[in-house]
């Protein structure tokens, strides 16, 4: 096999640094700014600093910084995986990225249809961003998905897409889509507004409940180890030995499985809602009519 050139190795190192350094920087920032607290407590995202703006000052929180970290990491992963693509004799990382791209392409084609051919990159970025955000809690950082502001932003983006594809059939078509049975129009409007709310709450609630349960169990184990091992002398009596390892077992479900599942569900719901909002028959009928005129 041909040896890799120096430039290739240098670029690889840069990309790996792009993947790891932001997480390290986030950890250091958290350690430096975290106020000393008694025991374990459930708190929201910590405010790092406040930007003074003319209308209202903008607090920059942990979740915003962490979602920037996730974005840089995701960019690093993408650049690393797609570095040095070849047509023959392909490397392991190219196998991986080809598999992922084919999977997402098939998934999108399966649930959205032929018209939405351009959607796989969007779906893939939602998947990657959401999964990495939830997995950030494995490093001890605050996962951005357990802050409703971040997830609500994504849900509003999806809502804008839904509205855009409903408007494809013209403004009249948009109004008509609510009056499917004309009597139920108010309920349809409510369910339309409820779509982004329920999407945001679903993702946020799942991740947040996982972290709250994790904190509760960690606190409980601290108390339990004080009761069970409290009679030991000195350091051994003080140190919460039961906290080592046991919360990690639950973390496999709540952080890894639940986080990845929620990313999949968010992407799946995005595809379902967007493709459901687009009325293909009417759109093509209108288009043909226009061409004839």
């Amino acid at each position: 096999m041909k040896r890799k050139s120096l430039g290739f190795i240098l670029a690889d190192t840069l990309y790996i640094a792009m993947m790891t350094l932001p997480v390290l920087a986030g950890l250091i920032l958290k350690i430096l700014t975290k106020p000393a607290s008694e025991g374990i407590s459930v708190t929201g995202a910590q405010i790092y600093f406040t930007l003074p703006l003319p209308i209202q000052s903008l607090p920059v929180t942990e979740s915003q910084i962490n979602s920037l970290i996730v974005m840089i990491t995701a960019l690093g992963i993408c650049l690393f995986l797609t570095h040095g693509l070849k047509t023959r004799n392909i490397s392991r990382r190219q196998h991986l990225v080809e598999w992922a791209v084919e999977k997402v392409d098939a998934m999108t084609l399966d649930s959205m249809g032929e018209y939405f051919k351009g959607f796989p990159p969007f779906i893939m970025s939602i998947l990657l961003l959401s999964a990495l955000s939830s997995l950030l809690s494995l490093f001890g950082l605050y996962p951005p998905t357990s802050d409703i502001n971040i997830v609500a932003g994504w849900a509003i983006l999806v809502f804008a897409l839904i509205t855009y594809y409903k408007f494809k059939c013209g403004p009249l078509g948009y109004v008509k889509s609510f009056c499917d049975p004309p009597l139920l129009a108010p309920l349809n409007v409510i369910s339309e507004v409820a779509t982004p709310i329920s999407m945001a709450f679903r993702h946020y609630g799942n991740v947040l409940s996982g972290s709250v349960i994790g904190v509760l169990i960690a606190t409980g184990l601290q108390g339990l180890s004080k009761i069970v091992l409290g009679w030991l002398p000195g350091f051994f009596g003080e140190f919460p030995f039961l906290q080592i390892g046991l919360p990690a077992v639950l973390s496999i479900y709540f952080d890894v499985f639940s986080g990845c599942l929620q990313a999949y569900i968010f992407a799946m719901l995005t595809m379902m809602y967007v493709s459901g909002a687009f009325n293909a028959d009417e759109y093509f009928a209108r288009k043909n009519k226009k061409i004839k005129n």
Partner: peptide
């Protein structure tokens, strides 16, 4: 399996609304 996971996620929504309200009430 994938349809079931989707359905479970949608069925879970009402429970999560309640969970969010409970968390707000406690914290």
């Amino acid at each position: 399996t994938s349809t079931m996971l989707m359905g479970c996620a949608i069925a879970e929504t009402t429970g999560l609304y309640a969970l969010v309200i409970a968390i707000l009430l406690i914290f």
